[in-house]
Design a protein around this nucleic acid. Structure first.
Lengths: 194, 194
DNA sequence: CCTACCGATCGGTAGG
DNA sequence: CCTACCGATCGGTAGG
């Protein structure tokens, strides 16, 4: 099953830029590299985008919005914390899997955003992380999780594990996002021990 | 307890570069930035180092050597897998804690290494990861860990969690490396559930 | 460690 | 989308 979408020229620029930024990093990617990749002159890019950074802003904030939407869906539901955690994880992985390239850029290149965009981005991120932290907190309150767990460590472990996935997860060769999310939440909730 | 060390001028250059690279990224850091930070002219840097990349090579390979040494120590010991895992984690965190700045650069900037250094670095890294994977495998064989766990996911979760620590771990405000490692391995081995 | 400088490349604009 | 071009900045060298 393939979804055929016609991308606007601007979207094509952003897509090609995402691939380039992931490969070489934002700062090391030049507009001339990008133009060459698309078979046009560097100056022509500016018919579609205002600046190099505008591309990065699109990539970072569009992904952030997707992640937020996914977690919104989960929080609407009345579920035990462990189940909410699982659904939150699966949702996150699904969003990533839809665009692993943009996800990698989101994770690795956001720091090249200038102010006030960087500040805004960081706020979105801390907010997202805190919502996961709240789910863990909820699980402790309800007695589902141990009181002794370090919430910050737990949520950072989860978050870094999710963030790192675009580096190794290949949806074509590996398990499907639902199963991967299930496995990850199983591991975090139940541990490795028999 | 403070350790006072006199750094050679070359080491000072590398130290200042590490701070700069962590803040702005390798590609976005110029030799003029670095020189200014040290109060000298850019051209003067080249009395101490051959090139910008030489600095990055030092940072990446010195850290890699430290990580390897730490894991060597653990593997020498005859211990159950869970204990080996714990000691491996604690060792890794201790190495990072000794130089969080270099650790962050090691993790985020290694991709700007040129060939053949990049290839060599990636080999060292995959080797290191595989040694952790072997410990997990060992735990499955011995019956300590579940047979159903996804080894790749487990080791990637561990590794990304360790790699991400320099972004949030502050040894001055947080728990000591030994306790942090203990908590992380507890969480991975026993899970969040009561 | 400095002055003086190199060729290359950068993001971006003007004008069509 | 192109040609022609801008000023700024890059990593690095020569020679002291």
């Amino acid at each position: 099953m393939e979804t055929i979408t016609t991308l606007s020229r601007k979207e094509q620029v952003i897509r090609n830029a995402a691939e380039l930024f992931r490969e070489k990093g934002y700062a090391a990617s030049s507009m001339r590299d990008l133009a060459q990749k698309m078979g046009i002159e560097a100056a022509s890019l500016y018919s579609h985008i205002r600046s190099k950074e505008e591309i990065l802003q699109h990539l970072c904030f569009d992904m952030a919005a997707e992640f937020r939407k996914s977690l919104d869906e989960v929080e609407k539901q009345k579920l035990p914390a462990s189940e909410k955690l699982r659904k939150g994880i699966v949702g996150h992985i699904k969003v990533m899997a839809k665009d692993l390239i943009a996800s990698a850029v989101f994770m690795n290149e956001h720091r090249h955003l200038s102010q006030p965009y960087l500040r805004e981005f960081l706020l979105l991120r801390i907010n997202y992380i805190n919502r996961f932290k709240d789910i863990i907190e909820e699980g402790i309150q309800s007695g589902e999780f141990k009181e002794t767990i370090d919430k910050k460590l737990a949520v950072m472990t989860l978050f870094s594990s999710l963030n790192w996935m675009p580096q190794w997860y290949d949806p074509h060769n590996n398990i499907v996002p639902d199963d991967l999310g299930q496995q990850l939440s199983d591991m975090l909730v139940n541990g490795l021990k028999k």
